[in-house]
Nucleic acid binder design. Structure first.
Lengths: 355, 355
DNA sequence: CAACCGGACATTAACGTTAATGTTCAGCGA
DNA sequence: TCGCTGAACATTAACGTTAATGTCCGGTTG
C-alpha cells in the first residue's frame, strides 16, 4: 500500500510550464489568472488527482482548521451525541476534529493539553476532568480559544456551554414531589464537578420550596472508575451496589432521583430483587434520557439533556471566539433541560412503604 | 484570548546565540551537542514555555503522526467503545486521532476520504458505509494505509478486523435451539453490509444443522436512518414497530434473534404490550451486550462483541502496515464473539404459543 | 610538526503551500 | 510615439521544523 508519491503544486506547474504560484492561485480561485490558464490547471490537477496538502497550508496560514475535542468518555450516551453533533457542525464550517479521550483521568488530561498545543489546533472544546483547572489555563495563556463543555471551570474566564443542571435537579425533584413524594434520595456520581454539585443544589432548592427536610443520607454517592476502565459499562453495576445499600434502610424514600439513566438501571434491578414495584413502591427519576430509557419497564421518567443544541452552541461559541467577534451571547450558556414524564413516576395507588 | 505569539526554535536560538539546528537537536535529544549547551537550551525552552509546532514537524517529516478514524455512529455503544480503545492505543503509540462521523451516509463518506487525504494522515481506520467501496479505493491508490473496521470491503485488498458475525449469528441461533426453540425469527438492520449478511448466514447454518426450516418471513428488516439523524436513539423505536408487525402473525416464533441490543428493547416493549412473557412465551437473543442489557428485565442473553480487542488489533494492524513489516497476522482478522447467557433465554416452562 | 580526526556547532536546503513583490508586454491615451 | 496602465504571469520570501553538509578548532598521532 506504499503508493506513489503525491502530486504537488510544483508537479503541475512543471508539466504546464507555469509557476507554482500561478497554479496555486488558479486552483484556489483567486483572480489575476487568465481563464485559459485556469482551465488548463484545473484539468491537469484533475488528471493527476491532485490533493492539496493541508499540512503545508496550515503551516503558512498559521491555522490548522482543526478543533481539539476532549471528551471524558464516549460510552456515555450524552457525550456520544455531543461528539456527533460537534463533528457535524465543525465539519460544516470547514474544521476537522482531533479527538482525545481522558477517561476522567487528570494525567491523561494534562497530556491532552500538550498534544493540543503541539498540533496548533484552531480551538478546542473540552469536557474538563475538573478538580484542577491548571492544565486548561495553559491553553488560554498560549492563545488557544477554548470552550468548556458541560462542566465549567469558573475560575478560568473561558466560555462554556452546558445544561442547566441546577434546573434539571430541581425539575426532577419537583416532579417527584408533585407526584406525592415526601422523602427523596439522590444517587449521584462521586466526581468533583460543577455538574453534580449543581444538580444537588437544584434538588435542595426543590425540597426547600416544598418545605421538605433533607436528612443525612439523602445524597448517596456512586464511585467512579477512571482511565482505561472509564469506557466500560460499569455504571449500572456500581449503582446497583449502592442501591442495595439504600434498600437495606429501615425507612425507604418515596422516590429516588439518579444522576444518570445508567444508575436507574442499577436501581431497577435492586428494587426488583427486593420485590418492590416502580412507581408504586418507589418512584425513579433519571437523568439524561438515554436511548434505552423510554423502553425500560416501566419507562423511565427522566431529564432530557439537549445534547445536539449544546454541541452546536459549543461550536458556535468557539467560532465566535476565533473570529474575535464580540457577540451578544453570554459567556456562560446554560441550556434548560426538559423533564420527560413516563411511567416510573406515574403513581396510581399510593402504597407508601411504612417503617 | 488572542494570546502572545508562540515561541519557536528560532526565538530560543536567538536569545542563546545558537543556531536553530543546534536548539532542535538539543531538545530532541540527538547527539553532537555539548552537555552544557543542551542544558542551557532545555532551561530556556522551559522558561519561555516552548511547545514544538507539530505542523511544521509533520511537513518536513512527511507524516502527521495522525490516524483518521471514520465511524458511522458514536451513539452505537459498540462504536463508542471502539473509539475509546482506539484512541487510547493510538495515543500510546504517539498518534493523534482525527475523527469523522459519517452517519451511514455515502455522501459524508466521500467527503471524509477527501478530508483524510488533505490532512495527510499517517493511516486510517474506517468503518465503511459500504455499498460502494470506491471512495476507499482512493485512499489505497494514494498510499494511505487503511484498516477496515467491523465491516469488510472484500474487493479491496485492505486489512480488516472485526467480529466474526457469522459465528455470532450461529451461536445466538444455536443457543436458542438448544433451549428448545424450533421456529426462530431474525430482526436485522436494513443495511447492505457484510456484517449483517454474515450474521444471517450464521443463523441459517445453525438452523440447517438442526434440521430446521427457515420459512419466508424469518428475516425481518428494521429500516435505518441516516446522516444527521443517525446519531439519534431511533433504533429501539423502529424495532418496536417491526416487532409489532411480527406479533400480529398467526404463528409466533419461539425465539427472536435481533441484530443489536437496541432492537431487543423494542421487542421487549412490543411483547409486554401483547402480554407475552420473556422467555416463557418467546425467547430473545441480543447482539452487542450493550451496557444496559444485563440490567433489563429479564436480563438479556446476548452476543458480546470484543470491542476493546478489535480496537487494539485495528491499531496494531495499521501500525504494521505503516512500518511496512510483513507480519504473520492474517490480512483479515475475525474475533470470535461470546454468548452471554442470561434470563431472556432461560426458559423453564415451555409454554409454546399455539396457532 | 604536519596531517588528521572528530566533537561541537553553523549553514544550507528542504517539506508544500500562500502572500508579497517583480517583471513582462499588449493596449491605450495624449 | 512615448509613457503609462494593468492583466497575467514569475520570482522571492515566509511558515517552523528536520536533515544534510560545512566549518572551526583543539587534540591526537606518526
Amino acid at each position: 500500500m506504499a503508493g506513489p508519491r503525491r502530486h504537488t503544486l510544483r508537479d503541475i506547474a512543471a508539466t504546464l510550464n507555469l509557476s507554482v504560484n500561478t497554479v496555486s492561485r488558479a486552483l484556489s480561485g483567486k483572480d489575476g489568472i487568465g481563464e485559459r490558464t485556469r482551465a488548463l490547471v484545473r484539468a491537469e490537477a484533475e488528471r493527476v488527482g491532485y490533493v492539496p496538502n493541508s499540512v503545508a497550508r496550515s503551516l503558512v496560514l498559521g491555522s490548522a482548521m482543526t478543533f481539539g475535542l476532549v471528551i471524558t468518555n464516549p460510552s456515555n450516551p450524552f457525550y456520544a451525541q455531543l461528539i456527533s453533533s460537534i463533528e457535524l457542525r465543525a465539519r460544516n464550517h470547514g474544521y476537522s476534529l482531533l479527538l482525545t479521550v481522558t477517561g476522567e483521568s487528570e494525567e491523561y488530561e494534562t497530556r491532552a493539553v500538550e498534544s493540543l498545543l503541539r498540533s496548533s489546533v484552531s480551538g478546542s472544546i473540552v469536557v474538563p476532568v475538573q478538580a484542577s483547572s491548571d492544565p486548561w489555563r495553559r491553553l488560554g495563556t498560549v492563545g488557544v480559544p477554548t470552550v468548556l463543555l458541560n462542566r465549567d471551570l469558573p475560575d478560568l474566564g473561558y466560555r462554556s456551554v452546558g445544561t442547566d443542571n441546577e434546573l434539571g435537579g430541581y425539575r426532577a425533584t419537583a416532579h417527584a414531589i408533585s407526584r406525592g413524594a415526601r422523602s427523596i434520595v439522590v444517587l449521584e456520581e462521586d466526581l468533583p464537578i460543577t455538574t453534580i454539585a449543581d444538580r444537588i443544589a437544584g434538588f435542595r432548592r426543590a425540597m426547600a420550596e416544598a418545605g421538605l427536610s433533607v436528612p443525612r443520607g439523602s445524597i448517596m454517592r456512586v464511585p467512579t472508575r477512571r482511565q482505561e476502565q472509564a469506557a466500560l459499562p460499569w455504571q449500572p453495576q456500581e449503582a446497583y451496589q449502592v442501591a442495595r445499600r439504600l434498600l437495606r434502610r429501615a425507612r425507604l424514600p418515596d422516590a429516588v432521583v439518579v444522576g444518570n439513566d445508567y444508575f436507574a438501571l442499577g436501581l431497577y434491578r435492586a428494587l426488583e430483587e427486593h420485590g418492590l414495584k416502580v412507581p408504586d413502591d418507589m418512584m425513579v427519576i433519571g437523568f439524561g434520557d438515554y436511548p434505552f430509557s423510554a423502553f425500560l419497564s416501566p419507562p423511565l421518567t427522566t431529564v432530557r439533556l439537549p445534547a445536539e443544541e449544546v454541541g452546536d452552541i459549543a461550536v458556535d461559541l468557539l467560532l465566535e471566539e476565533i473570529s474575535g467577534g464580540r457577540s451578544d451571547r453570554p459567556l456562560k450558556q446554560l441550556i434548560a433541560p426538559t423533564l420527560v414524564e413516563r411511567e416510573s413516576t406515574n403513581r396510581t395507588t399510593f402504597a407508601r412503604t411504612l417503617a
